[in-house]
Computed example of a mutant assay.
Amino acid sequence: MLPVNLDIDILRSFALGLELGSFAKAADRLGRSPSAISLQLKKLEEQVGETLLQKQGRALVLTEAGEILLSYAKRILELNDEARAAVRGVGKLEGWVKIGVPQDFAETWLPDLLGRFSKIHPKVRVEARVDRGVAMVQAIDKGELDVALTWGTLARPRAEIVARREIAWIGPDGFRHMPGGTLAIVAFDPPCAFRKAAIDALDRGGIPWRHAFASPSLAGLWAAVTAGLGVTPRIVEGKPPQLAALDPKEAGLPDLGAIELALHVAETRLAPPAEELKRLVLEAVAVR
């Protein structure tokens, strides 16, 4: 009997849905319908001969078999992506590339991506900068960065919108704002697109607010929210496990909509190392 080969596309849907906490969101990111993702998951369970997900309240959680498969799926996907990039490069690239990213990505998928890139292209020197958007576009103008990702276009005419992410209220699980009370917000000081989105939504909803805690680092914001100093408007990527993405209706808060992720480049024609890293970063953004 021939061994069953697991489908890479199905494994990617499986891993991405669990990473995002929603297979509907995974379907949207991958350009598929939710029903197509459901069929993929059913096929995956048939391939491994085990139930991978089970209902727990309104959520789907991994079974023991699902946890084991998820660990292997991540490794398989990393090897798949690394092999593809290695064959494309075959050690041809060399030079220097400088990239800037928001803190949300620097604490999640970016370090692994840069590690794989350096392994595939050992002759390329990579410098990564984690900073606020305004500082990064200034660095682009000065030639200190080749490529940068920022939240919002920052009114830059050459900025390219490459993705959109839903903004969520992040706070303690079960948090609810009492009607008539003043909401304590934890956020970066302005200019901050997340802070602006939250304030605009609160003002439209007639909800009083105060900026209770500011920090130059995302880690500082998470620490303040964990300590109960307020709630923060942010994307769910990188959210600490002790905090929850709040349902706006249940929490008595307004919906925050989405935020644009913009790409900025220093030159209209990038050097090959910068172009290759840009391509890999955009691929990573597209499937998350």
Rank of each mutant, 00 (worst) to 15 (best):
D173F: 06
R156N: 11
D146K: 01
L79Q: 05
A135K: 09
E107S: 05
W109A: 06
K98H: 02
A148Q: 00
L79Y: 03
V87N: 08
R129E: 14
G143T: 09
G171D: 00
A139T: 03
G115D: 12
S38E: 10
P122E: 05
K42W: 05
R156H: 09
A155T: 12
V162W: 05
N80Y: 11
G31W: 06
I140V: 11
Q54L: 13
A159G: 07
L70M: 02
L44D: 04
E166W: 05
L114D: 10
R32Q: 13
R58E: 08
W151Y: 11
W151G: 02
T108I: 00
L79T: 03
Q54Y: 09
V137L: 09
A148S: 07
I76F: 01
R158Q: 13
D146T: 00
G174Y: 00
K74V: 05
A36C: 08
G89R: 12
T51A: 14
G171C: 02
A85H: 07
I99F: 11
L114E: 10
N80M: 06
Q56S: 13
T153V: 11
E127Y: 09
E45P: 03
W96P: 06
G133R: 01
E107Y: 06
R129W: 12
G31M: 06
E78W: 06
A65D: 06
L39Y: 12
E107L: 05
L70I: 01
